[in-house]
Design a protein around this nucleic acid. Structure first.
Ligand code: SF4
Ligand code: SF4
Lengths: 131, 131
DNA sequence: GCCAACTGCGACCGTTCTAGTCCGAGTTTA
DNA sequence: TAAACTCGGACTAGAACGGTCGCAGTTGGC
């Protein structure tokens, strides 16, 4: 299926909201949640994941929160998706688990991988700044 | 998630196999299944769906089976995916069911739709003949 | 006429993935 | 010390997916 997960979706919304933020300032996950209408307990998860991937910076403590780690133009949709949904090729045969028994003789895996790279290139082409 | 469903995957494999077929001939779903190593009861489903969408022609009866309805170069990956997985935008807010309560004020849906069109354009660019 | 080999279609079920919630622990500021 | 926040994992309900089964309709050959 060619569809973003809820997590990626929320991640993009949150990142977009973080764009318009004075340098030095920070927004808490709860503030973001109510302001954007996102599920209250989902948002910290997403933000924390983005933080540990280095897309946003976090500050702990009472006045803590999140801010963009880089300029909005440097964060691509592709990267957000990769962080929140995990990288996985177009082909359903996943690494490790649930491999296809056809995988030995499969002749469409490579073409699909090429397609996947093209798709990711498209997603790479759009940044947080542009959406 | 940016990943093809098993159905689409199998559909592509089957269509690719149907490429090398004399005009007038036909392959039965069972033959395709054993020849390609696909789940036996899954293949008829996929082929039937492709048939009713007009991608393949079917002939009933004892010597029946499937053959491509158009030239392999005229069938794009995008079309196969659309038929077997259903068309759905990149954004998680699906038509009818499970709509997002943010949908009224959402500011990323349109950009995501644009992205989706670009992605589909990539998938449109690869045909059965090329994989 | 009858049987065998097909397609077509829908119902069904177990497993996996997803979305969302909850809780406890660590951190910083007032 | 208390409040507000991040961090991380565990947990649950529900939806989606992969796969199977059964039956009706069709066609060709004996
Ligand atoms: S058929 Fe080929 S591409 Fe599809 S899952 Fe199996 S090995 Fe991967
Ligand atoms: S946030 Fe916007 S794009 Fe995402 S599901 Fe809700 S309405 Fe659709």
């Amino acid at each position: 299926m060619i569809r973003l997960s809820r997590k990626s979706d929320y991640g993009l919304v949150a990142l977009k909201a973080l764009r318009s933020l004075q340098p030095g300032d920070a927004l808490s996950a709860r503030e973001l949640a109510v302001q954007l209408g996102l599920p209250g307990d989902m948002t910290p998860k997403v933000l924390a994941r983005l933080a540990q991937a280095g897309l946003v910076e976090s500050s702990m403590g009472k006045a803590g929160g999140y801010r963009l780690a880089r300029s909005a133009g440097d964060i691509s949709v592709a990267e957000v998706v990769r962080v929140l949904d995990g990288e996985s090729g177009l082909a359903p045969c996943r690494e490790g688990i649930l491999e296809c028994h056809r995988i030995e003789t499969c002749d469409i895996k490579h073409p699909l991988d090429n397609l996947h790279q093209e798709v990711m290139r498209v997603l790479q082409g759009m940044s947080i700044a542009q959406l």
